[in-house]
Design a protein around this nucleic acid. Structure first.
Lengths: 343, 343
DNA sequence: CTGTTAGCGCTTTCAA
DNA sequence: TTGAAAGCGCTAACAG
C-alpha cells in the first residue's frame, strides 16, 4: 500500500497535521521536526495525494479548456496562449478535445466535471444555445466561439462580420471584381462563424454598391484539402474569379496550393485573403494577407471573465446579479502581406 | 451550499447508499425508489462530485499527455491522435503544456499528480535522463521523445537517424551535391532529435563515400522564422548549396519561404526535404517531400505500453519483473512530393 | 510550535 | 432490495 500522511507521521513520531504543515509550509514547524518529517517521507517514498486535497479544499487551481480539435492550429495557438497566461498566475491549464461533437462538449461541461476544475473555458462549436441554456447551475464557465450562445453565460468572440468585410473590401479596393468566398455558408442557415464571415463578404459588396454573384460562394469542409478542392472546382467549372476570400487561413493554404498547381499567379492573377492570422500564415508562398481576430485581447478578456465568474461562484452566489454575464467581441485588424496588391 | 448525496437521500427518504446505487446503476434499485431519487436529485440540482469519487475509487479513468507546446503542430497532431484512440476506449485524455521547461516537465510527472491521472505520457524535451531516473516510484509513465531517456521507463521514439539518412540519401540520389542541413546540431553535444537527424545526414554522405562540408550545417531555433533566417544567412554568406534537409517540416516551411523570396526555384535550383510529415506539409508550394516518422505506430505502441504499465501498477507490483520496460522505435518512411526531383 | 477532532462526498463492506 | 457504518487521505478549526 502507498504510504499516507499518517504513515509518515508515525515514522517521524509526530501527528499527521504536523506532517502536512511541514510539507506544505502552511504553518510554521520547528526545523528539527521538519527534518525528521522530511526524512521519514523520503524513506517511505511518501507522495501527496492531490485528489484528497482537492476534496478537502474544494478547489483544484486548475482550469480546463475544451476545444474541438487539438490539431487545428487555431485551437493550438489559443491553448498555448491561455496556458502561458495561466502559468504566469500560478494556475494550471488542462486541455480537452471534444471532437466538435455535441455530446462530448456537453460532457466536458457536465455538472460531474465541475469539481475537477475551478473553471471551464468551452470553445463551443457542436452545441446549440438550448443545449447550454439547459444546464441547471451556475458553473464557472466562459464560452468561446462564434456560434449563437445563451445569454446567461459570459462569452468571448471575434468580430467575424467586420473582419470579413475588411478583408473583402481590401480585395475590392485593390482592383478585384469577382471575389470568391471559399468556405462560405448560406446566410439563412446556422449562425456560426462561416455565416458571419459570409455576411461580411456580402456587406463589403453592398458597401460598394454591388452584389456578389452566387456562383462565387463555395461551401467547403474545414480542412486544408477543402480549400484546394474548392479552387479546383471553381477552375473546372470555368467560374470567373480574380480574388478569393478564404474564411480561414487553413483553407487559404489549400487555396494557394491549388492556384499554384493551376499556374495562376498570386496576387497578379488572383488575390487571396484569409482569416485568423495563424503563426504559419506569414510563411506561405506568397505570404498570406489575413485578418487578425485579436488573439491576445480574446485571451485576456476570457481570463478576466473567468476570474469574475469563479469569484462569483466562490462567494456562494447562486446566480448573482452583482455583475451580469458579459458578451465581449474582440476587435479585428487586417494584416496585409503578399497575396494582395497594395492599394 | 451545494447539495450532496445525503441531501438527496433525505429528500427522497432513502439512504445515501441507495442514492448512489440509483444514480450509478451499480446495484439494482426498485423502479419506484429510483424514480423518487431521480426526482429529488433533479429538484435539488444535485451534481456528482468527481473528486470524492476519485478519492474513493483511486482511479480517474483519465490519462494526461504532457507536451512542450500546444501550438507546435507536431504535438497538436500527436495529442489529437492520442485523444481519438483513448476516446474510442472510453477514457479521457487531458493535455498539459510544459513550455519545454525542465521544472514544468518534472512538475507534470511529480508524485503529487499521479493520483490525478491513471497514467502520464510525457513528451520530454527539457529533462535529462538523471532528472527522470531520480523519480522514486513506479509511476504509470511512458516517455515520448528523442532525448536520451532513463532505461527504467517505457519509451517510444521515432527512428531519427534512419529517417534523416533516407531523406539525405534521396537528395544525393536525385543529383544534389551540396546538401545543407537546417536545424542541425553538433554531434558531440546533446543527444536530442537534432543530433540524431544530423547524424543521419552525415551517414548518408558517408554511404556515398563523401563528407558534408561543415559550412552546410546551420544551427537554428525551432520556429518557422528560424528556417527562413537560416536560408537567408546561407544566401548572404554566399554558401553554395543545391539542396536543404530541414530537420523539421516547420523549419522547411520557413526554408521554402526564403527560397521563394530569393527567387530560387524549388526543386530545380534547390531541392528541399523536411521531417515529420505534418498534416499541412502536403499543401506547401511546392508540396513538401518529407519523412513520415510513423505517427500511428507511435501512438499505438505508446498506448499499449501505457496499458501495460498501468496494469502493472494496479496489480500492486512495485517494480514488477513480469515484463521490463520496453524501448520502441517506430519505423520511418520517405514521402516524396514536389520539392524534390524524381530519381 | 504541535496535537486532536472532525469531516470534505462518495462508495465498499457487512448486515438486515 | 435497502441501510448503517466506516474510511479513502488530507487539512480546517480549535485546543494546548
Amino acid at each position: 500500500m502507498k504510504p499516507t500522511m499518517s504513515d509518515v507521521a508515525r515514522a517521524a513520531g509526530v501527528s499527521a497535521m504536523t506532517v502536512s504543515n511541514a510539507l506544505t509550509g502552511r504553518r510554521p514547524v520547528s526545523p528539527a521536526t521538519r527534518a525528521r518529517v522530511e526524512r521519514a517521507a523520503a524513506d517511505l517514498g511518501y507522495e501527496l495525494n492531490l485528489t484528497a486535497r482537492h476534496l478537502r479544499a474544494g478547489r483544484t487551481d486548475t482550469v480546463a479548456l475544451v476545444v474541438p480539435h487539438f490539431d487545428h492550429p487555431y485551437y493550438g495557438e489559443l491553448a498555448a496562449r491561455m496556458g502561458r497566461h495561466l502559468a504566469d498566475q500560478g494556475r494550471h491549464l488542462v486541455v480537452e478535445q471534444s471532437g466538435a461533437r455535441r455530446e462530448a462538449e456537453l460532457a466536458a461541461v457536465a455538472p460531474a466535471r465541475w469539481q475537477l476544475y475551478d473553471g471551464v473555458l468551452l470553445s463551443a462549436v457542436g452545441t446549440t444555445p438550448d443545449d447550454l441554456a439547459g444546464l441547471h447551475t451556475s458553473v464557472p464557465l466562459v464560452l468561446l466561439g462564434e456560434q449563437q450562445m445563451p445569454a446567461r453565460y459570459d462569452h468571448v468572440r471575434m468580430d467575424n462580420v467586420a473582419g470579413a468585410r475588411l478583408a473583402t473590401r481590401h480585395l475590392l479596393a485593390t482592383g478585384s471584381r469577382r471575389v470568391a468566398i471559399v468556405g462560405g455558408a448560406d446566410p439563412d442557415r446556422d449562425a456560426g462563424m462561416r455565416t458571419a464571415r459570409t455576411l461580411g463578404w456580402t456587406m463589403a459588396h453592398t458597401d460598394t454598391g454591388t452584389a456578389p454573384a452566387p456562383e462565387l460562394l463555395v461551401r467547403t469542409g474545414p480542412d486544408l484539402s477543402a480549400g484546394r478542392d474548392a479552387v479546383r472546382r471553381l477552375l473546372s467549372d470555368g467560374t470567373d474569379f480574380d480574388a478569393v476570400f478564404a474564411v480561414t487561413d487553413t483553407l487559404a493554404v489549400g487555396v494557394l496550393a491549388a492556384l499554384a498547381e493551376a499556374g495562376r499567379r498570386v496576387p497578379d492573377d488572383v488575390q487571396v485573403v484569409g482569416f485568423d492570422n495563424l503563426a504559419s500564415s506569414g510563411f506561405t508562398v506568397p505570404a498570406l494577407t489575413t485578418v487578425d481576430p485579436g488573439h491576445e485581447q480574446m485571451a485576456v478578456e476570457t481570463l478576466r471573465l473567468l476570474d469574475q465568474v469563479v469569484a462569483r461562484a466562490a462567494s456562494g452566489e447562486a446566480d448573482g446579479r452583482s455583475s451580469g454575464p458579459e458578451h465581449v467581441t474582440a476587435p479585428v485588424r487586417l494584416v496585409v502581406r503578399a497575396t494582395t496588391r497594395s492599394a
